[in-house]
Simulated scan of single mutants.
Amino acid sequence: MNIFRTTLAIASLVIAAPSFAQATPESIADSIMGDLKKGDAKSTIENLLVKAPLVETGPAEKINLIQTLDTFLINYGKVEGWELISSRNASNKYVEHSYIVFQEKYALYAELKFYRGKEGWAVTSFSFKDTLDDLLEIQSREDFKQSFKSLNSGN
């Protein structure tokens, strides 16, 4: 299996746009993943950047994002689905979601970070990677938390 060590990542501080006032992190993530499942890298990136209004990308960066995501789609096949593997929050205003995105030949690791400002929720950072090391690390942490809870409940 030819695994690309390419990482598609953008991070930015964001103030939510009014159009997202009724959106939740889950509904925004589902919309992004739904766009990705359609197999159109350009539309996925364009729609994602709308949900992250203060992420600044020039024409060259936007083209690079589209090409990288398109490479993932070409090499690993259609997106078949996704699963939330971890959700963390620092407060009721900041949430991070990690996903495994299942494709025909391989999987991607996706991370979306959200902030809720006066106008509602918006994406502050996102990344798509074809290295699953982060995914395995997250799963190990979750397994440890469950084991620790089990030990504590036995006392």
Rank of each mutant, 00 (worst) to 15 (best):
V101G: 09
I45V: 15
A52E: 07
K105Y: 12
A107N: 13
I74T: 15
S91A: 01
Q67H: 11
A16L: 00
I85M: 07
F20V: 03
Q103L: 15
D133G: 13
I10W: 03
N89Q: 10
S12H: 02
A23Y: 01
N2K: 09
N92P: 00
Y115P: 00
T68G: 15
I15C: 03
E46I: 11
Y99G: 11
G58M: 01
G77K: 02
G81E: 07
K62A: 13
S147D: 05
Q146W: 00
T131M: 14
K118D: 12
V79H: 02
A23E: 11
S31K: 04
L136D: 15
T6Q: 11
S125F: 02
Y99K: 07
K37D: 07
D35T: 07
I100R: 08
N75P: 02
L8C: 09
Q22V: 11
K37L: 10
V123T: 11
N92I: 02
P53K: 01
S27A: 08
E46Y: 09
T71N: 14
R88Q: 13
E142S: 13
F20N: 12
E80R: 10
A29H: 01
I15G: 05
L69Q: 05
H97I: 00
T131R: 14
T57Q: 08
M1S: 15
Y109W: 12
T7Y: 04
Q22L: 12
P25T: 02
G39M: 06
V55S: 12
L132H: 08
L151F: 06
F148P: 00
K105W: 05
T131L: 14
K129P: 09
Y109K: 08
L54H: 10
G120F: 06
E26C: 01
Y76S: 07
I28C: 03
S87C: 08
E80H: 05
A122L: 00
Y109F: 15
I74R: 15
L8W: 00
S91H: 00
G34H: 02
I10K: 07
W82E: 05
K78N: 13
S125N: 10
V101H: 06
E46S: 14
E80C: 05
E56H: 07
L135I: 11
A107V: 05
K118I: 06
L65I: 10
L132I: 12
K145G: 05
S19L: 06
F126D: 03
P53T: 03
G81F: 06
K129A: 15
K149M: 09
A11I: 05
S87I: 05
